[in-house]
Structures are given as C-alpha cells and as structure tokens.
Write a protein that binds this DNA or RNA. Structure first.
Lengths: 189, 189
DNA sequence: AAAATAATCGAACACCGTGTTGATTTATGA
DNA sequence: TCATAAATCAACACGGTGTTCGATTATTTT
C-alpha cells in the first residue's frame, strides 16, 4: 500500500527541480509559471493545484532547504560542546561541500537575497549566544560588530569558494576562516 | 538660457526618486511601470520615452550611484598613499554616513544583490592589488581568501550599522573594522 | 479484473500589465 | 508670438495570470 499522495510528491519534486535548475540561469522574477511547467513537463493547471505562484513555490523550497540545513548541522552543533571550534567549522564547510549544488543556487547571482541574509542573521545569533560570556569586558556593540564581521566574512569566503569551483579542501577553508577570525591578517604570515 | 532638456531632467529625477522610494518597501520584481508612474505623477508613455523597462531605469540609477561612489572615493583613494589605512577606512565610513539614504536602499532587503556583489568584488580587487606585494610568502589562494573574508566582513558590518540606525560614529566603526582585520578576536579584549 | 477514487490534463475564460502608436496638449526658448 | 520638443491621452495587440470546466489517466480498493 503506497502513499496515496505518491503522484503529488512526484509532481512537487519535478517542480522543485525545474525551479532550482532555472534559478541557475535566471532571477525568479524572470521565471514564468508557463515556462516552469513546460520545463517540468507538467500542466499549468497542476502547478496551481499545489502553489499560488512561483514565490510560494520558492518559499516552500527554501523552508525545505532550511530544514535540511538544520538537520545536517544538528549533529554537528550538538557535538560542538565536545569539539573544539575548528572542528565545528571544518564540519560546516564539509556540509557545504556535500550540498554544493543547492548552496550554489542559494549563494549564486539569482539566489534569494533574503534567504541568505536570514541564514547569516541566525548564524550570527547562535555564535553570539554561545560566545557572549567569554567577553565580559567588551561593549555590546563591539561584540555585535565582531560577529557581524566574521559571519559576513565566512559567508563571503564560502561564496568565493563555491564560485571558484571549490579547489581547496574544506579543511583548508575552515582553517583559514578560523585563523582570520582569531588572528586577523597574521593569517598571511 | 536654460538647458533645453530641462524638462527631461525633471522627469528622470521624478522617476528615479519614485523608484528608490518604492525599493524601500518592495522588490523590483513587484514594481510595475504603471504604479511607478502613478507615484511619480507621470504618464506611462513618458516613461517608455526614456526607459525600456524598470530594469533599464534601475541600471541607469545604479550606474549613477556607482559614478557617485567613485567620485566620492576618488579624493580619498588618491590621498591614500599619504594616509594610513585607518584614515582611509574612516573616510569611507563617513562617506557611507553622508549617503545613508541611498546606501540603505542598496544594502537593504530589496536592493539589487548583483550591485552589492559587484561593489564587493571591485573593492576586493583594489585591496588585493594594493596589498599583494606585502605578502610574498603567502599562497595566492590564501590572499584571495583573506580579502574575500575582510571585504565581506566590512560589508556585513556596514549593513548592520545602517540597519541598526547608525548609533555609533563612523570613526568607531572604522576603528573596529581595522582592528578586526588586523588582529581578529583580540578586538574584543 | 473491475470499480472507485484522486490527480493530471487540456481548453477556454476574463483580467491586467506591457510596450507601442498616433494625435493632441502643454511648456520652454528664440 | 512662434517653433520646437516634451508630456499627455486613448487605443491597440500581446502575453502571462489565475480560475474553471469536463475529460483523461494512474492508483487503490473491492
């Protein structure tokens, strides 16, 4: 006895795959429901049976991605108490490498800016929370500034890495990120 | 004898003001020529006399902004040889503060992602060129990584600063950015 | 294997914004 | 005042949207 919604799942998967594929070459605003359905080999009416418009579809894809990231990071972060920060950073870069296709879409030129910002914002929050107690003497705005800087820096580093074809290993990237965060320009010995 | 294209300039200014105002609350993809012209109190036909579509208008606005940035930064950068890096950074943050309205639109949720990326890319390039010779022992990818990180970090810092209402002075921001770039987490003494 | 169910399809529909055109009105400068 | 150039207005075909049918197909149940 298969899932009675088996066909629906296939339909949704086809639409998601078509949209992510199209987002590699066009911004969402240039993607029409018509073309999307042609690509997915689906009737246009079928699209409207499941989604209100392309933005609705993207939202659901992003929610799924966010859940996927949380699921992938959860074992890493739950073990973070026992691991040293470099190991956590390394695991995160490995996670990005393993999901490079999706990450490229998100971070690439036509990825949703707000989705990236939200990712940044939430990672800044977690870093801030877990590190706040270590810097009792710093002013709040300085702590905020530092974590804005380093999360933005890591994001830019990841973006550059994905764009350039991930020639370096996740280990080296994580190592670089850690060293820059800790010691600044001394990284370039 | 006024400029014979006086009326055209007014029309264009009205359209630019209307678009930048609307970009505070909506993404470009949600802005129609119809609504734009209603807001600018202009006939729709008049818009098409000057621009092909809203993207064309935005491109021209961005080109104007980019020229404005270059003009504002030119005296700073041309004097950079005589100034120490912290002074340059300070002047850049002052420049951002002076043009906060426009910067907020660019960097805000509905600003053009590609425009920001292009700004980042070109500032990374200039930093890279002017600093390359100081690090003969570092591998090329490390230099690339460092400057990706710090330009992305500065961008994120600026974004955060603008979003939070610019409570700190440009001097403090510049000082923070310099210290983080140079010494990393030691900034949070 | 046949019937029942649910999803997809295909076609038609009104709606709205687009981009263009041509005639008309308004403002500017000579 | 007159000539010129720009803004206005109305109308147009076009294309994508979102909806609604009934028909068709695939899956599950009996």
């Amino acid at each position: 006895m298969k899932n009675p919604e088996h066909r629906v799942q296939i339909t949704k998967r086809l639409l998601r795959e078509a949209l992510t594929a199209m987002l590699i070459e066009k911004p969402l605003s240039a993607i029409t429901v018509k073309e999307l359905c042609e690509r997915a080999q689906l009737n246009r009416g079928t699209f409207y049976a499941h989604y209100a418009d392309v933005y609705d579809l993207l939202e659901q894809i992003e929610a799924e991605m966010a859940a996927g990231f949380r699921a992938a990071l959860e074992p890493i972060l739950s073990a973070a108490g026992e691991l040293r920060p470099p190991a956590v950073t390394k695991k995160i870069f490995e996670c990005i490498e393993a999901n490079a296709d999706l990450c490229r879409v998100i971070v690439g030129p036509y990825g949703d800016k707000e989705f990236g910002r939200e990712l940044l914002r939430s990672s800044k929050e977690s870093c801030l929370k877990s590190c706040l107690r270590f810097f009792p003497s710093a002013e709040p705005w300085q702590i905020d500034a530092y974590f804005s800087f380093v999360t933005g820096g890591c994001y830019a580093l990841m973006e550059c890495w994905l764009r350039e074809g991930m020639k370096e290993s996740p280990e080296r990237l994580a190592d670089a990120a850690e060293k820059i965060m800790e010691h600044g320009i001394a990284f370039l010995g």
